[in-house]
Design a binder for these strands. Sequence first.
DNA 1: ACCTGAACACCGTTCAAGT
DNA 2: ACCTGAACACCGTTCAAGT
Lengths: 223, 223
Amino acid sequence: MPRSPTRPPRRDDVLTRERIVDAAVALLDEGGEAGLTFRVLAERLATGAGAIYWHVDNKGDLLTAASDAVVTRALQQGAQAASPRDAVRAVALALFDAIDAHAWVGAALIRAAGRMPMVRILEALGQPLVALGVAEGERWPAVSALLHFILGVAGQNAANSHVARTHEVDRTAFLSAVADRWLELDAAEFPFTRGMAAYLREHDDRADFLAGVDLILDGLHPA
Amino acid sequence: MPRSPTRPPRRDDVLTRERIVDAAVALLDEGGEAGLTFRVLAERLATGAGAIYWHVDNKGDLLTAASDAVVTRALQQGAQAASPRDAVRAVALALFDAIDAHAWVGAALIRAAGRMPMVRILEALGQPLVALGVAEGERWPAVSALLHFILGVAGQNAANSHVARTHEVDRTAFLSAVADRWLELDAAEFPFTRGMAAYLREHDDRADFLAGVDLILDGLHPA
DNA sequence: ACCTGAACACCGTTCAAGT
DNA sequence: ACCTGAACACCGTTCAAGT
């Protein structure tokens, strides 16, 4: 073996796209989108900032790749379901939990329009809808409604948890503060919002989320 | 009059929160969220960057204020409607158009959680829902579904228009390119998405948007 | 082929100093 | 009370130079 015995190229030492993406996910989990920085990412991976650009196009590309990693993992569980309706529910709930655990994913997905992570979600929701018998012309509005509802509500919920966590209060206390602000609104101009304040304080996010999914599914008229 | 005749404090010269917000909206329209910078904002307003901080807390505050200005204007039109259902449709369409004209608003609203612009939308959607007879316990899931659908779809549509505009192709050409990418996907793994590709090329965003709103409204069970 | 790290052209925010 | 503008502590991205 002519190769030098010192510093053999150990597999763990190589900088790969996968290692970069994993480190990016960790950074995003810790500090949100502001926490992902090429400098600290390079430090974590023990390289120079520029090295990362060999494996990744730019920050947007990295963010999309990180989202795709999270979404792929989330969609793997709950793959088998009894009915198409249960399949939609399982996908919705898996995404809800994934976005709750990785608060930055919601916003990142929206910016990743027709890209891979979104296509995966589209597919996971679309297949059961077809099985459910949704007519051809209604499929797009139906997946749209489901997709945006899921990302929107889950994103909002995750944002609430995240803000609460960073302000060192629990979720309930945070929602209570929002409810208090709502109750200070003008009674004539904002009757609905004021009426929702009490509900906001006590509601169960997960249960309401599933109720919303059912509401949309109920709106479909299978052929 | 003891006041010096030169440089009388003309009303138009004063730096007000309103003037700052208007300039911010213009900057955001021109260059998206990256286009809003305290330096160029200060230049536009012929002041120093630090002066803006006297009227505005920080960039997030400014972004929320800019969103609120756009939302308030959008909700003013279409205020009177024949039926509650028409009222919901009018609000939805007004927001769709406003977000299409100001592509940055969608994302900005989502980050403005329980804040003023969101409360305004909540109220504009909630009041007709109550008039529609939606039961107490269903009101929150119902507004949630509507709200997130509207912001999600409108935001997506605006992002598409915006990307198309900056890449100097028209919307149709851009959506066509996305459809082409979808058709390159694996047929066994992504049958639904591939099936939607043709639809994506020819569909009418506004019509589909309204169809989605109707779909959610149909899912409600008035008491 | 892959990595280094200095350099470039920016950011948001603060703050002493002015009027 | 309101504004100025330099200064601080950062950014993402590029690129000559290394191995």
